[in-house]
Design a protein around this nucleic acid. Sequence first.
DNA 1: CCAGACGTTGTT
DNA 2: GTCTGG
DNA 3: CCAGACGTTGTT
DNA 4: GTCTGG
Length: 241
Amino acid sequence: MCYNKSTIEKLGDLRLQSELFKNLRGKEAFDGIPQYNALRLQKLPVIATREGEIRAFKALWWLIPHWSKTGKPEVTAFNARAESVAGSRLFAPYLKTNRCLVPVSAFFEYSSREIVRIEQSGKVKSVKQPYCIRMKDEQPFMLAGIYSVWINKQTGEELPTYAVITTTPNSVLEPIHNRMPVILEEKNFERWLDPGFGDSGALKNLLMPYPATKMKAYPVSAAYLYDRNHNDRKCWEPQTT
DNA sequence: CCAGACGTTGTT
DNA sequence: GTCTGG
DNA sequence: CCAGACGTTGTT
DNA sequence: GTCTGG
């Protein structure tokens, strides 16, 4: 989960937990989606409770702490490990009060297995085999995130940023990669979005690998995904060759 | 005390 | 131009 | 993604 | 901002 994921395709895909998202504010955060090849340091829609309301807003995929002097990514904080997040000087305050949902339809992992590509020049280059990971029913799902809001003291502007929590792989991911993002069960969305819920033990129990039985993974074209200009549904297409 | 870190993954 | 680091 | 480096010898 | 290491 360190490089790319796909946002949901359209707002209507957020059928999940209709009660919870019925009065979702900030729907304009979903303008500009889908991003099929969404990378770190892009602004992508997330959902959190702010000022007592569940709302969507765009946030930079790389957590910049509120105390940052520069507002730039100076600490590696696009992912946070579930095993250590609660005790982290950097992340713990956000886990306590600033949890968010990151709506996606797919994410990609690069297998340690290398594939060899022969360039036009005849140069031999080895690259990692990417896999597309989705739900078997192809429905969107929610990654567990924590967010920060950095405020530019000069202009007063807000810069929301976030990190995705990672955990150990389930049996679908295990052959591909040694980490995977935390995917939240629908029944836990409400608790995750409740800023008043501070029981770190109970929160930690939510940060478990998602059931492998609901997920699938298949190889996709490395040549296609590697090109950052490629941003369409073909990113999800199973590799044919 | 003060300076410096605070973090993650695996390299498009 | 292309890769690296944040 | 974007900003910044891209390097070596030899030592303040 | 808050903790750690020197």
